[in-house]
Design a protein around this nucleic acid. Sequence first.
DNA 1: GGCAAATGATTAACATGTTAAATGGTTAGG
DNA 2: CCTAACCATTTAACATGTTAATCATTTGCC
Lengths: 177, 177
Amino acid sequence: MARKQSAKNSGSGPAGVAARRVPMRDFSRSLPMSLLRAREAVMRQFRPSLRHHELTEQQWRILRALAAVETIEVTELARTAFLLGPSLSRILRDLEARQLIERRVAEADQRRAVVSISADGLKLIAAVAPSSEAIYAAITKRFGARRLAELQEMLAALEHSLSAMEVAEEGSVEADQ
Amino acid sequence: MARKQSAKNSGSGPAGVAARRVPMRDFSRSLPMSLLRAREAVMRQFRPSLRHHELTEQQWRILRALAAVETIEVTELARTAFLLGPSLSRILRDLEARQLIERRVAEADQRRAVVSISADGLKLIAAVAPSSEAIYAAITKRFGARRLAELQEMLAALEHSLSAMEVAEEGSVEADQ
DNA sequence: GGCAAATGATTAACATGTTAAATGGTTAGG
DNA sequence: CCTAACCATTTAACATGTTAATCATTTGCC
């Protein structure tokens, strides 16, 4: 932690640092950073297992979403797996090439694509699920099941709070209360 | 392979779903997803304002981290702004080209680079800070200051819990509990 | 001093996030 | 009907996430 900081108020760096005082809270304690760090701490536990099966986090999300339904349209899948259209489009192309999913156009509406998981996809899920569940159980045990449920509830409440909040548009930067 | 896709039975049809049963919890309720959705809900509020100033979320993190110190080495900055080296490297190159930061090599150790914010960078922060603070205040008011502090505490606790947890390595996928 | 190992930073390669535009298909008004 | 508006999906373009490799420098050790 002992960082050599040759800094006085007149050392190297930009001259005249008096203007540095901008009144903002310590950004490392900001909500976005807290959420980012917490999520990273969680995902760090899962990534090695997924990587061992040649799966990214997003690919795993898609497979799991598909495993829960018979078929699903792309737009609905994007909402379920919480991915944007372009990302989903690319990943589905790859998963289809790996024959982990199947895709066909909807009969009623030729614009829509209907996706489903393949037998290979189900096999892959069955292969990954045990270690994934074990990791989740370990996290739950370490943090506390009650505490974890409480956290999830707060996260859902936060999400719900903000969903009703309209986003400040550009052009009038200071017109948001 | 032969999978029926009869009509609009995209939910939980009782037909032909027997092989699909893999015992996993609903992934949309998983902790990673909860954290991801919560963070996205928060960032959705900030992105338009940042975009209005031609800043990405990560660039903004770097500028704010730089504004809090006189100078900082790249490795330390990566830890502070929670970015991986390669991402930071690219972003610093761009920010330097836009003259929002300054960079020089450390005298003691030629491998290390020392970064500081420029006068233009400070001006940009001053321009963005008001709306950013306003948005944060709106979030705090809507969710509740106490509740927010409580959430942050739980997130920090979760991070701390997992930091002590050793990551399961590859090679022995099924050797856990 | 000299050299292998370690270190800080960057580059490479590929996957995803993000916004805008393009591509086909569908629907509504005239 | 016919076309303009709309809709679902994909493609494009650029920024970042992620791991591995590279490059230059420094350090440890004899």
